[in-house]
Design a protein around this nucleic acid. Structure first.
Length: 513
DNA sequence: TTCCGACAGTGGGGTCGCAAT
DNA sequence: ATTGCGACCCCACTATCGGAA
């Protein structure tokens, strides 16, 4: 198949807001693919090529200057082969080898094809169709039930292979795709609740008769651990195999009293007193190839398979019983209760121990791989501060033409970081903005503009905005030495003056809890 | 007819390894 | 030795479509 056909279809998909129309257009395309084109094409449609990391980012794409082809000629398999060569380049000279490969590809592509190719390589198509819509399209094209396609994709962790199987295999083969020890599963995800009481009410239902599992929520990295005898693999949330980086977790898995097991959990590093280290310190270890002093410790909160028995379709209550037999000291602290006061007390314990908060989970729910449903709710404390807008950046995509991303400053009353009474930038945010707020920003900020830079409109520091954050972290980027974590807008505060804003000292005090 | 679950988009912070400088 | 890039860990929130109620 020609790449140009994907251009036509993805343009059509982007042009309609109807998901049914997107699914129909994608299904029609999928039906026309040859079997060996399905894997590559699905990778393109998800902007997640099957080759994985290509070593190609925004910089390498935009620094190219090539004349494009006048007529389409590239096929899906041509592009797949070019991406193979890009992914294979490493070592000295690899950057120029990749640049040459990119240049060759760009020269063979029409400008429309190159536009699609760059979006594929940069990982964002923005056509309003990703995994969910594409899986529906696969089901439609293959004439299979959507849930069976989705389940196969989630349990195999591989949408491309699932599409190939659905389109070329039998329904029975698709239905036979299941858990396999050693092959990662898309992890189950959580929604957010505003309080433990709310979470318990949601989980327990209107009558709140059902109890829930309340568990510590740790500020670390998600891990999925597979053990088959002495063979152990550790995967990240995005299913990357990081076994070689975490020997201490491999060793811990080998100590478990089970032969074949799949566990879901979280890992982080502790300080000498056994208190959790900041997320940044955990990431320094988790992201590193080399062994350093700080050891990662695993905590397991779920079990998907135990010694020949799949548990994903069992209720959480059954899975927790199995986990209790296997995990020992590596079991995530948790209680089962229907009592709000008891759950809240447990949440306070989690926070007192230095953790993020708690998870509240429905005991009757199966392990819904790849789903972000209401069966798991996270509850974390939210802090709010009044900060001052220093600049605004124009938005992109559906925020094109609107002023979107805010630069936020804290008051510096003593002039520790500049003029007394000035402001120190502590982060940015684009979150929490409604369409109405975006329109208001776009009208308001030009009226107090002081200067424009390449990326932002700088304004007089007079606009106070209430910002919610989860906390602060060390920063080498910002002059105050801290950055906001997960900042989002709660609302503008026209009733407040800038000199009433919260101070950099107040925010810095959060660093040490 | 209204409600709500699921999805996609819009970007934020930091950390690492690696190649180029 | 330093710098810039790419990859990837954490993440909140709003708008929208279309099936469920």
């Amino acid at each position: 198949m020609l790449l140009a056909e994907l251009v036509t279809v993805t343009d059509a998909v982007a042009a309609t807001s109807s998901r049914l129309a997107k699914v129909a257009a994608l299904a029609e395309l999928l039906r026309r693919l040859e079997p060996d084109e399905i894997g590559p094409a699905v990778g393109f449609l998800l902007a997640s090529p099957r080759q994985g990391r290509l070593g190609v980012g925004w910089r390498s794409v935009t620094s190219l200057d090539v004349a494009h082809a006048a007529e389409p000629g590239l096929t899906v398999l041509d592009v797949d082969a070019a991406l193979d060569r890009l992914a294979a380049a490493e070592g000295p000279g690899s950057a120029s080898a990749r640049a040459a490969e990119l240049k060759g590809l760009a020269g063979r592509a029409t400008s429309g094809e190159w536009d699609l190719l760059t979006r594929i390589m940069l990982g964002e198509l923005r056509t309003g169709a990703l995994e969910g819509v594409l899986l529906d399209a696969v089901a439609q094209a293959a004439d299979r039930a959507a849930p069976s396609v989705r389940r196969a994709a989630m349990l195999s962790g591989d949408v491309g292979e699932t599409a190939r199987l659905a389109l070329t295999g039998t329904a029975a083969e698709l239905g036979a795709v299941g858990l396999q020890v050693g092959r990662p599963v898309m992890p189950m995800l959580a929604s957010t609740a505003s309080s433990v009481a709310d979470a318990l009410a949601t989980i327990g239902g209107p009558q709140a008769r059902g109890a829930a599992s309340i568990e510590f929520k740790l500020d670390g990295a998600r891990i999925q651990v597979h053990r088959d005898g002495d063979e152990v693999h550790v995967y990240t949330r995005s299913l990357a195999d990081i076994t070689h980086r975490v020997p201490e977790i491999v060793e811990a898995a080998r100590q478990l009293p089970a032969e074949r097991v799949i566990l879901d959990g979280e890992t982080l590093t502790l300080d000498e007193d056994g208190a959790p280290r900041p997320f940044q310190d955990t990431m320094a270890r988790f992201g590193s190839e080399s062994e350093v002093a700080a050891l990662l410790r695993p905590w397991f909160f779920d079990i998907l398979h135990l010694d020949g028995r799949d548990l994903i379709d069992e209720p959480l209550s059954t899975r927790l019983e199995a986990l209790a037999r296997v995990a020992g000291a590596a079991r995530m602290p948790g209680i089962v209760t229907d009592d709000v006061a008891q759950a809240e007390a447990f949440s306070r314990d989690a926070l007192a121990a230095g953790h993020e908060g708690v998870m509240v989970k429905a005991l009757d729910a199966p392990y819904a791989a790849g789903r972000r449903g209401k069966s798991w709710l996270k509850v974390k404390p939210v802090l709010t501060y009044d900060l001052v807008v220093l600049a605004v950046e124009p938005g992109s995509g559906r925020r094109t033409g609107l002023l979107s991303n805010l630069h936020l400053g804290a008051l510096d009353p003593m002039g520790e970081f500049g003029e007394p009474g000035g402001f120190v930038m502590v982060g940015k945010t684009f979150k929490g903005l409604t369409d109405a707020t975006l329109r208001w920003q776009t009208e308001h900020f030009p009226t107090i503009e002081t200067r424009r830079s390449a990326y932002a409109l700088h304004v007089r520091p007079v606009t106070v905005v209430e910002i919610a954050i989860d906390g602060v972290q060390r920063s080498s980027r910002y002059p105050g030495g801290i950055a906001l974590r997960f900042a989002r807008v709660k609302g503008y505060r026209p009733d407040k003056r800038a000199d009433e804003a919260d101070t950099i000292q107040t925010l810095r005090a959060l660093l040490r809890g």
